[in-house]
Amino acid sequence: MDAFTQIFGFAFQYLDSAAYLILAALGLSIIFGMMGVINMAHGELMMIGAYITAFCMYGGIPAPIAILLAGVGAGIAGMILERLIIRHFYKQLLSSLVVTWGLSMIISQVFLIMFGPNMPSLPTPFSDIKILVGGEVGFALVGAEGFARVTGETGRMPPGVESFGIYRLVMFAVAVLMVVAVWLLLRKTEFGARARATMDNPTMANALGISTPRIYAYTFGLGSALAGIAGGLFALTSAITPYFGAAYTARAFITVVVGGAAGVINGLVASVAALGGVQTILSNLFSVYIGFVGMIAAAFLILLVMPTGISGYMEKLRGRSR
């Protein structure tokens, strides 16, 4: 493998792992940062998004619309959970953790009873389009025909050529778009200002006429909708089961806690950049398993030095320089 192929492969993996972490953690990060609730049912909201996407696509609805509907559905589900249960546990870290954990088990059991242990899998979009790098090809974006031409009669890749699916890059682009959209929503809109004010000082926000319960419900709905969209995107690349969410929850949590609650977006981005980097380097050097273990070790070290996460640490530094 030549150097360019290696670098490209590394960059591809980095973007892939960053997309994974951003998508899994963005909704959770908003709910944790803005409301101080540890939502253990986050993965189940992703799972709901995956199921909605699946049912829509079985019915012939195109993937992008199905995924948007997954966001809407999970958002509504999240708002119902917030109104009925979660609003009683704001700012109570441990209680919220236990309650949402219970909820997560109930939700996945209900899905198991209703829809069985697995669902027919969905086709991955753009699976025909590939990026080929290295060897005699150099660098090429090919469709099914081009791919067949390169592999020739043997059906095998020529020596030194690596193939990369394009859907992973689409996921990364969507992840970045989602981060930008959430940033704009929080920074540039009236809802965003009210949500940040409520996070900063709920009593005062209330005394200025802002209905804080409504802000909480919308914020939880927003976090849930982002989980639903992420679930829909992941549903196109993995098996859809009632326990779909559990795989994402752990990594989402590590990412959010390392990011810290002081800055929802910049904390998340910094955390993803760091953890995704560690994971990619170690996976490349050793194995995927070591990559995951290394990510947890990195999280452990970061939290040892910065107990309130990266954004909390930055906040402290800024406060000191003032």
């Binding site: 200002a193 004010a197 900063d200 005062m204």
Partner: peptide, 16 residues
Amino acid sequence: RGLFTGLSVEDNLRLG
């Protein structure tokens, strides 16, 4: 004073 200390002066004003 109950200001939203992390927000800008303009954001604080608008929130009233």
